[in-house]
Amino acid sequence: MSLDYVKFSPGFERFMPKEYRDMVEHGPFGKKVTVSQMGSFKEILEEHPMCAGCAMTLFIRLAIISFPNPEDTITVGTAGCGRLAISQAAIPFVYGNYGDQNGVASGLSRGLRLRFGDQPKDVVVMVGDGGMADIGFSGTLHSWFRKEKFTTIMLDNEVYGNTGGQESGMTNQGAVLKMAPLGKKFEKMDMLGMAKIAGCAYVATVVPNNPRRVESVIKKAVLIAREVGPTYIQAYTSCNIEYAIPTDKVMEDAKTVEDDRYKFSEYFTDEAKQFLADRYGYKEFLPKPAAAVTQA
């Protein structure tokens, strides 16, 4: 868990594959990279077996670039499409068995705090809607109620895409899918509301058709989770296979859904705002100068 783990072992430089050499020499470790620099540095994410044009992959790519300290980050996932890409990255990935991801992350984050003390080590859970809202539901909610300090990201494709198109709790009411031919009977679960009730310090919804916004949301969530409390991001990452979206129309669909029912929203507790302003200098949360207040 330091910059040392992305270095060559002495004597092995010339035997390493090109991708590894590029990662050591031109990777983002120890530097500050932003989404506007994409295409000019070697990314942590490597080639992966996800479907062509998958919006979930785009979100994962943006999320991994946005981690404030990638060399001090561990990702946790579970069964589902997302782990196929998240595990193909040059940062440690822990596979929580089905539904266990938030339990695994709780232990991991507590252990890292014991071992490294004040040095921030980030744990980020990235799982699909089925793994979080159905199978791992109790584990997820309990980790929030216990105020475990790590970030949880839901890759919400509104279907079990990996297993052929069954409905999940996050599928919209009435949606007809290959393995749900009668249509979904009940409403989409309100995980955002539950996250707020359970005491998450930061809750956000985001759609990957705005890379800079994804970056800002992930950065805030990871930073707040260092000291304040659990954070939750719900990202719409359409499944172009199960919802039959032509791959070149994936971003058009993301835009339509964002305008319709997935509007960008952010929720902060006061403590989280205070923390971002004091510790990381976020100007929008700094208290307004007295003069400005009286004029207003």
């Binding site: 506007s36 994409m38 000019s40 490597e46 080639e47 992959t57 785009l58 790519r61 890379p211």
Partner: peptide, 18 residues
């Protein structure tokens, strides 16, 4: 504009040459 480098779902596929 560099938009395509930010919207490609594959890592290091659309690259930029200044």
């Amino acid at each position: 504009c560099k938009l395509c480098t930010q919207f490609c779902p594959e890592a290091n596929t659309i690259l930029y040459n200044n």
